[in-house]
Amino acid sequence: MDSRFNVFIVCLAIGVTFVNGQRPSPGGCPKITSNAMNNTAKFDINKYAGIWYELERSFNVFEIGLRCITAEYLAKSDGTVGVVNRGISKWGQKVTIEGSGRVADRSKPSYLKVAFKYSPEAPYWIADTDYTNYAIVVSCSDLFGLFRVDSIWILSRTPDLPQSTMDALHSYVDRLGLSSSALSRVDQSNCPN
């Protein structure tokens, strides 16, 4: 292959990574089917709506230095989803960013396209949820199946989950073809209401 093409691919990958705030990996995105873990066939955005605590995440440039992160999802009457992410910076400042999502494929209602101010629309899979305790969320884009950028989040309705549940969620992330070892804990201690 021409070395200029290789340089182009590397520059493109770096650009996509920083635009989407995701981490790079070799290979294509995994094939994700909604709610495979609990065998729920149909995703329900109204049951998913509400506040979720971010317990673990893979590297995401937009969340560097943040703790006490929550995501609030609002099912709107027009079929879109309001998204409000909140956190506390390492300097103690409250950080809020609002966005919106839409179902990207009616046959896959847990597959959304989500956009925040100053960012392009990104794929957003609710890979699994039981609606009342946990959710696994994945964002992934690939370049011809050779290279991908992805983000993984483990969310909960409470600031903590039992270790046995976390172990099962890590196992599921690995079965998706992603790496649970890429996840790091989000500090949810001493958070304001």
Rank of each mutant, 00 (worst) to 15 (best):
Y131F: 14
V103T: 13
A75C: 02
K76P: 00
E54C: 07
G79K: 10
S3K: 10
Q22R: 13
F5A: 12
E121T: 11
G28W: 11
Y118W: 15
N190A: 15
Y111K: 04
F116W: 11
Y53K: 11
R102W: 06
F8W: 13
V173E: 01
I126P: 01
G27T: 08
T132Y: 06
L169T: 04
K117T: 11
N46V: 10
S164E: 13
T165G: 00
N6F: 13
S151W: 07
C140S: 08
G92N: 09
V10C: 04
S164I: 12
N133A: 11
A135Y: 00
G92M: 14
P192S: 14
I126T: 08
G50I: 13
P120Q: 08
D142V: 05
A115R: 14
A13R: 01
Y172F: 15
T17V: 06
L183N: 00
C11A: 15
A182Y: 11
Q163M: 08
N190T: 13
N85R: 10
N133C: 05
G99E: 05
G177T: 09
V114P: 04
A13C: 11
R175G: 06
V16N: 03
S184P: 00
W153D: 01
I69C: 03
R148D: 00
R86G: 02
I154C: 03
G92A: 11
L183P: 01
G27Y: 13
D105M: 04
T96H: 04
G65P: 07
K76N: 14
Y111Q: 05
M1E: 05
C29S: 05
D142A: 08
C140V: 00
A135K: 01
L112H: 01
K42F: 03
A182V: 05
F8P: 02
G65S: 07
V16K: 06
L178H: 03
S151V: 06
N35C: 08
G65N: 09
F5L: 14
S151D: 02
Y111V: 00
K108F: 05
N193S: 15
G87D: 04
P26H: 03
A13L: 15
I9Q: 04
I136M: 07
T40G: 06
R157S: 03
A104Q: 01
